[in-house]
């Protein structure tokens, strides 16, 4: 009855040495950062493990949750599914670049006011995604905001308040609020 089997996720190929590192320059929140990175480092891991910018979260590492959302050249993307080396020359904004605890970005303030989170782990991704949504300017109605925020899972189920927070900023008469 007992049958032998072998496990090796990468198969039985000959073992290649780890890839060499090179200097990678990333522009993050307006600051140029120089890193020694191998090509297999994702933008997400570069932020979290090499730059201590841990505001960007890892919720799945496979583009299935949106917790790692950052803005690249103003557009929201999943930082887990791009390599850091691919982003040389791009302008990257993380949650740390939006506001500080003493000077919150209007969306950050709206998230606090509407209690648009509980555990807080998906929150930076939600906020970066919402910044992207406002820049895109496509979503206008509640249903459209819901659809266009559907790339960001929230296991605490804070969706109702997330949508309210975004609506407040979207409909704010003060355009400065939507900076």
């Amino acid at each position: 009855m007992n049958t032998p089997t072998t496990q090796a996720a990468l198969g039985q190929a000959a073992i290649a040495p780890p890839p060499p590192t090179s200097t990678v320059t990333l522009k993050i929140n307006g600051v140029e950062r120089h890193l020694q990175l191998a090509p297999w480092t994702s933008l997400l891991d570069a932020l979290r493990e090499y730059l201590d910018l841990t505001g960007t979260k890892k919720g799945c590492d496979h583009g299935q949750c949106g917790a790692c959302t950052v803005l690249v050249d103003g557009k929201r993307i999943n930082s887990c599914l791009t390599l850091a080396v691919m982003q040389e020359g791009a302008d990257i904004t993380t949650v740390e670049g939006l506001g500080t605890e003493d000077n919150l970005h209007p969306l950050q303030q709206a998230f606090v006011d509407h209690d648009a989170f509980q555990c807080g782990y998906c929150t930076p991704g939600q906020i970066c995604s919402a910044v992207g949504l406002l820049t895109e300017g496509k979503a206008k109605t509640t249903a459209e905001i819901r659809e266009m925020m559907s790339g960001n899972l929230c296991r605490c189920g804070a969706y109702t308040n997330i949508v309210s927070a975004i609506e407040e900023v979207l409909h704010s008469k003060n355009s400065e609020l939507r900076r």
Binding site: R48, T54, T94, E96, L98, L104, D115, G120, P124
Partner: peptide, 18 residues
């Protein structure tokens, strides 16, 4: 409002792997 709100919305709140 949540007193830990500003830390959470700015990414300053540190979780176990951070």
């Amino acid at each position: 409002n949540r007193v830990d709100g500003p830390a959470k919305v700015t990414g300053a709140a540190k979780y176990a792997a951070e």
